[in-house]
Nucleic acid binder design. Sequence first.
DNA 1: GAGCTGTCTTGATCTGGATCAAACCCAAGG
DNA 2: CCTTGGGTTTGATCCAGATCAAGACAGCTC
Lengths: 217, 217
Amino acid sequence: MTLAYPFEDVRTQIKSASLAEVMDRLGVRMNFAKDEEIYAQEEDADLIYRVVSGVVRTMRLLSDGRRQVGDFYQAGDLFGLEVGALHRYSAEALCDCAIQVVKRSSLRAQADEGELDRAIWEATCRDLERAQDHILLLGRKTACEKVASFLMDLAQQGPNEAIDLPMGRQDIADYLGLTIETVSRMLTQLQGSQVVEFASCRQFRVRRWDVLERLAA
Amino acid sequence: MTLAYPFEDVRTQIKSASLAEVMDRLGVRMNFAKDEEIYAQEEDADLIYRVVSGVVRTMRLLSDGRRQVGDFYQAGDLFGLEVGALHRYSAEALCDCAIQVVKRSSLRAQADEGELDRAIWEATCRDLERAQDHILLLGRKTACEKVASFLMDLAQQGPNEAIDLPMGRQDIADYLGLTIETVSRMLTQLQGSQVVEFASCRQFRVRRWDVLERLAA
DNA sequence: GAGCTGTCTTGATCTGGATCAAACCCAAGG
DNA sequence: CCTTGGGTTTGATCCAGATCAAGACAGCTC
């Protein structure tokens, strides 16, 4: 396997346009209903997925049902690129989703090799960077800092705009390693101190970006 | 100064034998004393590091000094392969270490491209897989499960052998998102229930592999 | 509208792990 | 030997966040 020189900033918004095109040509568009499983943990990982619309969550279960959400994937993101042969996390549609699916092998045969490798590399790197941030958050941040970090991450686009929260409280809790009740309390608290403002429980606006940043630690 | 002595584990040796050789030829061997910094957070990441002997930890600090250990790297492991241009974690020698260091660019010019890419890819994938396990551990496991998982991970080689714990309690705590006291209590508890046995505080043996596995959840 | 149903918030209480504070253990150095 | 000092263990107490238990607030359908 040939890889692009691993030195580029993966956060570049250039979302490999031509890979998307090839995926559209070779792949299948599938629709998943809210909470439908896209692939299971331990399942063979020979497909590549791209979110066309909607949001996807990856997650892992402990034997007794405790759940950890790995990450959320939005429109344009590649996911399901497991490192080994098997999926280590399962993936589910967070809301109704359209997903473009392609077999790795057929893609490899048809697409520009370099292009494909580069896209896979970038998606993997993005996953790793986010995983590293996630580790710091889970290991050493307080409930309030976790929630503040989470809101900041969602609101990357900048303050003042209305941001949609596509996921419910339970998903946020399982992403942050908290309970729904704690998430709810922290959100109420942040709203009470004028840092953010909720129009409804699924939409908010950052009022004090500086304070939010400080709280996220 | 420690002399080079080839005691890499078999797994890594097979994977990147010739890369190691090229790194030895082109790179510099550096020695680091216990707790010495190998690279800092936010520093430029244009070097590739391979542990020759000793153990390395990567870590990240929050502004108020809370610390999260990202991972530990043993002889044979590649590290410092950041995704972007800057190191997102810092790296320190856990004990006296010998590290082989090479400039990415010079390596690229000389080595077999495919070989290098493959080694970098595999090291990155290993990091990602371990990060994913780490996320589940930090987000949803109890103190006891965390410690049990940690011991199991160290003892991969199998039960019955004496395993060295190269890191102190503080490093374990900062890896598991706990305090030293809690780590110590859990170790005492595991020893009390005959699951593991400590010869000294830096060496143990697994007595009941099945129980340890169950406790790790 | 009135009833549902699922999600979210709020309140009261409990507890696992943190914090605070000794004591212990040993290796290194006088 | 006896110190000294870093790492570790142990004990007592505290508190952030979990758990348990109501409410409140939508969207629904009928």
